Each structure stands twice: as C-alpha cells, then as structure tokens.
Amino acid sequence: MAQMEHFATRADLRTSPVDSVVERMHALRDDWPATDGVAVFNRVYLAVTEEIERRIDDGEFPDRRAAVTLDVLFAQRYLTAVDAAAAGRRAPACWRPLFQYRRHPGVRPLQFALAGINAHIGHDLALAVVDSCRTLGCEPVDLEGEFDRVGDILILLEERIREELMPGPDLLEIADPLTHLLGSWSLERARDGAWSAARLLWGVRELPGLAEEFTERLDTGVGLVGRCLLTPWR
C-alpha cells in the first residue's frame, strides 16, 4: 500500500502519474498475445484509462488531484494483481479466475472482458476509494463526484464492449446461453455495490479485524461471480 500512496502523491500532479499507468498497460498489451484472456481485459481497461486521462486533461473533473489519485490507485490494484500472478504469488481471489482461465479455448473474449471488469469494479474500486481517502485526507463523500464521473465513463464503455465482443448475429443472440449468463451481471449494480462497500470500509477503518474480514468476504464473493462469468461454452 505504501507504494501506491507514493505513486499517487509524488510531485503536485503537474505531470499526471496516469501516464505511467497507461505506459504499463501498453507494455502488457505488447507482451501478451491478443487471445490471452487477461490481454482482452487489459485492452478494455487501457481504453478506459486513456479516456479518463483525456477527460481529466480537458477539465471535466473539477478536482484534478482527487481524480488522478483515484484513477491511479484504482489501476495499481489491477497491476499489482498482474505482478503477483507473474511472480507465482497468489493474486486476490477476485482475479484468480481470470488468471486461471486466461488461455481456455472455450471462454469467449466478452467473458474475459467482463470477468476483469467484475474483479476490478466489484473489489478493487471500493478499496481504491478508501486508499484515496487516506492519501488525500478526506472522506468518501468528498470523492463522490469523481467516483460518479468515472462510473459514467465505465458504463458507456461497457455498452461498446458488449457490442464489439458479443458473438453471433443479432437474431441468434437471444438463443445464445452466453447472452443469458452475461445478462445477469450489471456494471451499474457493481458500481453501486462498490460505493456502498467503500463507505462501509471507511466507517470501520478503526476496527481492523472487522475491516479485514469484510474485505476478505468481498474478495471471495466477487471471485465466485467471476468464475461464473468464465463458464466455458465448449
């Protein structure tokens, strides 16, 4: 966590640390084959991060420092999971299904993308809000505007992801079991759950045992959803 805090607070954000996150994701994209399941999510998340950076630079986030801090600490949780898997360490439970199934031929690209989004929104976002509050010395309510703007971008991109990665002609999509599976998951509901989890974690921050137990259960629950999203179809 200390590494994340240093990454977010260094300098005065005249040079956005988001650039370093984008560069790392570009490097991962270049290293992984396009069919790799984590690479599918990485491409999606890279597009999201670049869009957020563009909007920050355009002044669409009133509190630039808060927006950059939240964006970077959020991304660092994904990158830390990638590093853990690469080093043979146990990644958080929410990420394990994606790393385990990343080369499974029966899992479709849309499943990989949504499983990664599920892990990142369902688990990492709540913890990134708490990380940001500690870094900035503020309360979750002070970040609600930045949280909502990031969430709006994610929802717009989710629609594009479904359109680009959903297989089959429109007339056949209704009969595709994948349609029914993915229709049971909603980014908007996941985002609302992340905000509630962040507020709860902040409320119990002085009760470390309770906070740790809740975080562990959140991680496990999101991981179970991810495993369902990655159900192979052949």
Rank of each mutant, 00 (worst) to 15 (best):
H120S: 00
D170R: 12
T135D: 09
E139V: 08
E164W: 10
L156W: 09
R149N: 03
V82C: 10
Q111M: 02
A175Y: 11
H120Y: 00
P167I: 05
L114D: 06
A128I: 14
R108A: 11
L172V: 13
T135Q: 12
G106C: 05
C138M: 11
T135R: 07
E164Y: 11
G88T: 15
R96T: 11
P140T: 10
L187C: 06
A119L: 00
T135M: 15
V82L: 05
R103A: 06
L154E: 06
D170H: 08
I155R: 06
A84C: 09
P109A: 15
T80W: 08
Y78T: 01
R149Y: 04
V150D: 00
L165A: 08
P105S: 04
A175H: 08
P109R: 03
F99Y: 09
R160G: 14
A81P: 03
L165E: 01
R162P: 07
L156D: 01
F147R: 03
E164P: 07
I174W: 12
C133F: 12
D83F: 00
I174V: 15
L79D: 01
A87T: 07
A81W: 10
E163F: 04
P167G: 06
A175V: 15
A86P: 13
E146R: 13
A128H: 04
G106W: 09
R108C: 15
Q111I: 05
T179N: 13
L143T: 15
G145Q: 15
L171Q: 14
I153V: 11
I161G: 08
P167T: 05
E164D: 13
V130E: 14
A113V: 03
G168L: 12
E158M: 01
A93Q: 11
L136Q: 05
I174D: 10
L114K: 01
V82M: 05
I117R: 02
P177I: 12
P167R: 08
P167C: 07
L127G: 11
R162G: 10
L114W: 01
R90M: 09
E173H: 05
G88R: 15
R108N: 04
F147A: 02
S132E: 02
I121T: 06
W185F: 08
R108Q: 13
L154T: 12
I161A: 12
A87P: 04
A86V: 00
V129Y: 12
P97D: 08
R96D: 02
L156Q: 07
L157P: 01
G168A: 08
Q100L: 14
W95G: 07
T80K: 07
R160I: 02
W95I: 05
A91N: 15
Y101T: 13
A119D: 05
H104C: 14
G168N: 10
A87R: 14
D170Y: 13
G168S: 11
L154P: 03
D176R: 14
E146M: 10
R149Q: 13
W185V: 06
D148Y: 01
L181Y: 05
A91I: 11
E163M: 05
